[in-house]
Write a protein that binds this DNA or RNA. Sequence first.
DNA 1: TTAGATGAGATTTTT
DNA 2: TCTCATCTAA
Length: 722
Amino acid sequence: MDLVSLNNNQRAAVEAVNNPILIFAGAGSGKTRVLAYKIAYLLDQGIVVPEDVLAVTFTNKAAAVMRERVTRLIKEKHVPLNIGTFHSICARILRNDIKHLGFTSDFAIYDAADQVALLKVVMADMGVPKNSIIPKTARNRISYYKNKLIAHDVAMKSARTIQDRTIVDIYKVYQKALKKNNALDFDDLLNYPLEIFENHPGILGKYRKKWKYILVDEYQDTNRAQFLLVKMLAEKHKQICVVGDDDQSIYGWRGADIRNILDFGKAFPNCEVFTLEENYRSTQQILTAATAVVENNEDRADKNLSAIHGEGENLGLIETHDEMEEADAVISALEKEIKINKRTFNDFAILYRTNAQSRALEDSFRRNGIPYKIVGGTRFYERKEVKNLLGYLRLIVNLKDTISLRRVINFPPRGIGLKTVDKCVLQATKDKKELFDVLNNPEPINIRGKQGESLVNFHNLIKKYNDLLTKINASELVRALVDETEILKYYKRQDTIEDQERYANVMEVLNSVDEFMERNPGSLLHDFLEEVSLLTDIDEWNEDENHVTMMTVHSAKGLEFPVVFVTGLEDGLFPLSGALSERNLMEEERRLFYVALTRAQQMVYLLYATERRRTGSDSWAGLVSRFVREIPEQFLENISFSSAMTRKVVRTRTGNLRMKVKRTVTTFDDFKVGDYVEHAIFGEGKILALSGSGENQRVGVVFKDGLKKKLIVKFAKLKKLA
DNA sequence: TTAGATGAGATTTTT
DNA sequence: TCTCATCTAA
């Protein structure tokens, strides 16, 4: 096994195999590499065989990368390592052993939307007044308790207000309701294995024996349950290696506890600690600037990162008026980078704090014909039409899943409304029957005619596919189901653009089932459902395509780009104002900014708006964020952005005076079809067509390499050539 | 009783 | 811009 390509610290960390190991790996210090080498080394030295290794990564994508790297290193085709996220590994444990908790292995996994739906039902049943507690708030609070492993009774003791107590009550009932639906939420996925291990030492023993060496990536983001799982599994053999960076701990709000990494030595007393401080990613300027910020944190292990790639340029700081101007400033900087440094679109990432901030950017990019991809936001599998189809599948797999049942019982519309469902629920409670079984016999509850017939039909439809589950393969089953329910037809007959998109999305689900079955022959439908429930945003991102990537800083973890734009950098937005109050919240926001900066290899642009519009007449006060001000001035260069807008003061509905921006409109009176033009990004081209008027003039241009672009004129920068 | 239309309100970050 | 709740016609 050749370790010469590693630096001294990396090699030492790889070769240390006798004690529990903690590796502090600063941003860009090659931690994935070290982990891959470590696994390969363990195998190479004959310390373990692949089946003995459990490696936990933060995303499925990272798991795939890890597997691929190890495979390459040990030069073998198939390496049966156990690699996955905490959630996927726990799901696997539970499929085997959840019977001890009274669930069946067909359990459903509820996402946030399902949780909220269930909470609404629960709260209505409990008679909680409609406007007193927002279901979403209840969800967050309950999730918080579960993340911290706080049981109802303990939570109740600390509940001070009536609202707090109500939420704890809801928590208890919600937990029961999940069980009734044979469903787990994301938090249960982590907590239940722990419960099983605690109460059934035999099962714990089985996994301890199975996983002889445990490696955990992104250890700074583990929560209480994850920590305990790792501890329980590794306690006996103590063959464990965790890697992380306390400066990049950004999931505290999700229960992640930075103490897990800082106090690793307490849990594993004779551990060896390695620190990787050579940075292979960024320029020294970026690194020093980022460090200057995060150094202000008190909860922090000291480290001294140095860049091996040299000094680099100053970070660019750009002030704009609002989010639209900000988007234009990004594009103009992008043009400059492309022209001067010969960059391609996939060299760029735009990072922001909240998903909603992508909107203005998206608009501007579309108008300018620049290819972009947004990671996150409303995810594919969370779209209504997709969730509806998946709802069918989930119900078929797990007939107890009443949330899915409610979702699809009237989709496409078949005349079963709220009232009818209510009656069925009432009957089910009265007879102590499953909701699904009530549908079969609507007569006794006064549902006759069309509704009764619909109910029975629906029941038989689901039952039929439930029977088919083990008889035909998943691809065929889903296709037959879509056909019979006429979901595609439903979207096809209405021809709005929206419906076309929905049609395409349903088709996409069909394809992804096919693709899944090809990848995992012999799998069952619930394997597919599990995979899509546990997909992360970044898993769906393809770095090979040539487009600008936009995402939240949280999604960007572990990634790197030559040029990074960080937008929305005004106080109050990045961080959101609430975070400025408590020290630990503030420190996490600072780390978030640190993570954003250290994604960049060569250049960082920092953007803030003096008057960002939020909703209606409301706007954010726009001072540059205090974190930007923590960067010493010599690392910053002010870049002025010449706006293409005129400003106007107008009176709004609510009477406030507000700056309104209006863009200067370039008209195309001077241009005609056949003219040769030059575009800042796409180069020379020939005008193919002109259309529209006023603010909506469009121009179609064919560029040199045959690239056709439709641009919205007022933003396109076209120069006429002779 | 359901389906479609209309109006008001809301927005951290994610497995 | 999107979602959710309420109103109204069928």
